[in-house]
């Protein structure tokens, strides 16, 4: 009897802990999921024409995102999405020199969503990138 109540107590604690953990994680997870889905839609509209739906780029015209070192530098990634790029870059051993046009109409949250999608899909991230991060990244003057 005593042992039983002890057990049920432990069980209850366990349940609460698990619940607590899940609710914590789930709000974070939910946000990540939302950013991922919206980011994916934005990616299709603004990026996939050139970089393609699978992020593999197109022949030697447009560079792939999959395998690119740039996606591990998210601040730079955010700046490139907003301001475009005109440098020659080497991605996965191939040289690309066509300029990428800027996207002046994308808002900070939209950029955060695109960065979230790209880094969660093809990078190492498992959670979303917050707007504040993008805001700070874009505040840094000087283009990439």
């Amino acid at each position: 009897m005593k042992q039983r109540s002890y057990r049920s107590f432990t069980a209850r604690i366990l349940v609460f802990t698990v619940l607590g953990l899940t609710s914590c994680r789930s709000s974070e997870e939910l946000k990540s999921e939302q950013y991922f889905v919206t980011g994916q839609q934005l990616y299709m509209t603004h990026c996939a024409n050139c970089h393609q739906m699978e992020g593999k780029g197109m022949s030697n015209l447009y560079p792939p995102i999959v395998g690119s070192a740039t996606i591990s530098d998210k601040a730079r990634l955010a700046r490139i999405i907003q301001h475009g790029m005109s440098d020659t870059i080497i991605v996965n051993g191939k040289k690309f020199s066509r300029p990428m046009p800027p996207n002046p109409k994308l808002t900070e949250i939209e950029i955060a969503e695109i960065v979230s999608f790209v880094t969660m899909k093809w990078g190492k991230d498992s959670v979303y990138t917050p707007i504040e991060f993008v805001h700070k990244a874009l505040a840094v003057s000087g283009a990439d």
Binding site: N49, C50, Q52, M58, L61, Y62, R98, P99, P101
Partner: peptide, 11 residues
């Protein structure tokens, strides 16, 4: 330099 439909058309 078309960023919209041309890449899709060329593909």
């Amino acid at each position: 330099t078309c960023p919209t439909i041309c890449p899709v058309m060329k593909k």
